[in-house]
Every structure is written in C-alpha cells, then in structure tokens.
Nucleic acid binder design. Sequence first.
DNA 1: TAGAGGATTGAT
DNA 2: TCAATCCTCTAC
Length: 193
Amino acid sequence: MLDDSFYRRDDVTQIARQLLGKKLVTNVLGKRTSGIIVETEAYSHCERGCHAYNNKMTGRNKVMFEIGGVAYVYLCYGIHHMFNVVTNRKGVADAILVRALEPAGGEQWMMERMRVTSIKRITSGPGKLTKALGIDRAFDGKFLNGTDLWIEEGLKINSRRILSSARIGIDYAGEDALLPWRFSIKDNAWVSK
DNA sequence: TAGAGGATTGAT
DNA sequence: TCAATCCTCTAC
C-alpha cells in the first residue's frame, strides 16, 4: 500500500512516471484482481486537456479537487469507465489516467468479466482495464487505501525504460494536446495501441 | 429542458 | 471508418 504522501505532491508528471510498475488491486464481490501499471497520462488544471482546466468544477469532476490519494472514475462515450488517480493537495485539480495494466493476479475473474477465454490484450486500454478489474463509478471519490481498491509497490522501473509521448484523444486541447505527458514502459506488450 | 459531444473500443 | 450508448455540460 502506497503512503498518502506519494499522491500529495505537486508534480503530476513526476508521479505519473513513478506510477509505472506499481500494482493496482481491486477486491470486488470477493474477486481479487490486480495488474502492474504500464501506461499513464498526466492531467493538470493548468492545461486544456484536463476536465478541470482553469479550475472549472462540475458535478462530474469535483473529485479532482479532493486531496491526493482518491480515485476519479467517470463514464466516457456512454460505454467505458475511466480510472484516474487524484494527486496534489485539496483544491488543486491534478489527476493521472491509468491507461493500461499488465495482469498480475485474478486473471480468471478478468476473463469472466470480459467474457473472453484468453488474457491476450485484456487490460491494454483505459476502458478495458476498468471492466476487467470491476471498476465503475461506485469507486468515484474513494480513497486508494481501502479494502476493495488500492495501489501497492510492484516492480522497480528504470527511468531509461520509460517512454513519453503525446496524450491520446484530446485533439480539442489545441497545442496542449502536444504535451509529452503520456508515459509507458518501453517494449511492454500491454501498452495500449 | 433540449442538444451536442466525449481522456474508447471493436467490428467492417 | 463507423457505430454503440448515456451522462454531462452548455445554452436557451
């Protein structure tokens, strides 16, 4: 279990890098599933790609303004749940989208939830990993140190193995869409395409 | 209160 | 390339 101080820091891109290799665990209806985080994206209230750009608070994103260490979960395209880690101090809306995991426990439950018989690419995308781990909006605003959702130490990732690139699917953000705030583990097969 | 659109995915 | 699918936000 990570210490609260891990999330309550100022530099969201630094935390996004350090989340790579950590293990995300859920325990939903007695089915424990987990995966190593292999891809993240940082979002800051200072740039237009963020739901809370310019400190705009709405019913959906208000959890982003909470203290670092809680989950921000919302529905996208009416179909997919997105899981984010809220960072920074209360009132400062920064968050990190977890985009892909490498399965690391409970694969049989993930396959059951996804209705597939192979673990191939089962968590390689933000909408897929939430479904595989049973994450939905019931987790929105929950602390990441609970008994049904938490993040713990996993693998040590050498900084030379971390790639950075532009974030996905935020063309509306103008030049902020070009910020290299997407981080992934080099040559990992579970990174989204 | 109506209308537009989204931090995606998988099939065509 | 396109539809699925529904909640959120904005404007009227």
